[in-house]
């Protein structure tokens, strides 16, 4: 590992100034992804600015019904937070489906959003990878691509985003609060991550030096009926093959509102707007659930090893919607 300088940030402004002026500097939170990448040689920062002791470690219910989650709140604490368990079960479940107990105790909200793909070629510095080394090629296109993308991929990159939490946040229409050298801005979480296109090395729209300070959840009362389901190769402690985050509102047997996002399918958490449109005003029936899945998956393009993801997504979405709408009816 390349030697690096370590600084513990005591205030956000100086942390942002330090990282902004040094292209080799990086923020570090829980470190569960970054430390691993430094061991693997994927990234070689010259300086780490530790932001874990900045005052971003609380979850606040705001007067307008929104909930603000500080960027350094640990994944385990967020999942255990009563307001999240009661008002946004999809988010608690997504967090609890990710990683392991000991990793969730370290991992932060901001770091979870900014974690990088687990594509095995990205993580193996001996193989070509356009995300790790732009222009070197994509080993997954013709390689082992069971875990790779079926929506929104490019010929440069077929990696998937690994976060569960971000999929729930995408379904909930969360906002990401960002501070940078030029002030603060708000980025909808659905616009934080990019599709790979010609620049797969750019995971997000954040610029160097920008710091995620918080995530805000909208009030969204019907999210009390929401759910996250993750399908994977083993029962626990594995990344998603397919995951579904959903919240639905049912009135007199018809779906009046729905929020759906998919994980494991794309370079970003995939907000399923076509499925949502298909469900709007539809009866809560198996046919409607499957039609919604088909609407979203019409554009899916599969690779050698991941054809199974299309029917698996259809089945998982139908199963989650069935469960949520039965819950509503009972």
């Amino acid at each position: 590992m390349k030697p690096f300088d370590y600084q513990r940030a005591t205030d956000a402004d100086s942390a942002i100034a330090t990282v902004s002026r040094d292209p080799e500097a990086r923020y570090i939170g829980g470190g569960t992804n970054l430390v691993d990448h430094m061991k693997l040689g994927i990234t070689e920062p010259g300086k780490l600015v530790d932001i874990t002791r900045l005052p971003y470690d609380s979850v606040e219910s705001l007067p307008d019904g929104r909930v603000r989650i500080g960027a350094t709140v640990r994944n385990s604490d967020l999942a255990a937070e009563p307001v999240i368990r009661q008002r946004y079960p999809v988010l608690a479940q997504a967090l609890l489906s990710g990683a392991s107990g000991q990793l969730r105790n370290l991992a932060t909200t901001g770091g979870n959003l900014l974690q990088r793909t687990r594509c095995s070629y990205f993580q193996d510095v001996t193989t070509p990878c356009n995300k790790r080394e732009p222009g070197s090629g994509c080993s997954a296109l013709e390689g082992w691509n069971r875990h790779h993308a079926v929506l929104g991929a490019s010929e440069r990159c077929v990696a998937t985003h690994p976060s569960d939490m971000a999929v729930a946040l995408a379904a909930l229409d969360a906002d990401v609060l960002v501070a940078g050298p030029d002030g603060q801005r708000t980025v909808p979480v659905t616009e934080l991550h990019r599709l790979p296109g010609d620049e797969p090395e750019q995971d997000t729209v954040l610029r160097h030096g920008e710091l995620v300070t918080a995530v805000e959840l909208p009030s969204l009362p019907f999210a009390v009926r929401s759910r996250y389901r993750k399908v994977r190769d083993r029962a626990s402690y594995a990344f998603a093959l397919v995951s579904v985050a959903a919240a639905v509102e049912v009135t007199d047997g018809d779906i009046t509102d729905a929020r759906i996002a998919f994980g494991g399918l794309a370079h970003k958490p995939w907000r399923a707007t076509a499925a949502e449109r298909a469900l709007h005003g539809a009866p809560a029936t198996e046919e409607a659930f499957r039609a919604a899945a088909d609407a979203e998956l019409a554009e899916a393009e599969t690779l050698r090893d991941n054809e199974f993801k299309v029917p698996m997504t259809r089945n998982t979405l139908a199963s989650v919607l069935r469960e949520l709408t039965q819950q509503e009816g009972s």
């Binding site: 370590y6 513990r8 570090i28 829980g30 470190g31 569960t32 430390v35 691993d36 780490l48 530790d50 874990t52 385990s76 392991s100 107990g101 000991q102 990793l103 105790n105 370290l106």
Partner: peptide, 20 residues
């Protein structure tokens, strides 16, 4: 796994310097 400030954590994924 160790208990770090009372909570279980993987000690291989955190730098010692960050745990002063």
């Amino acid at each position: 796994t160790v208990l770090l400030d009372g909570r279980r954590a993987t000690s291989c994924l955190t730098f010692a310097v960050a745990n002063d």
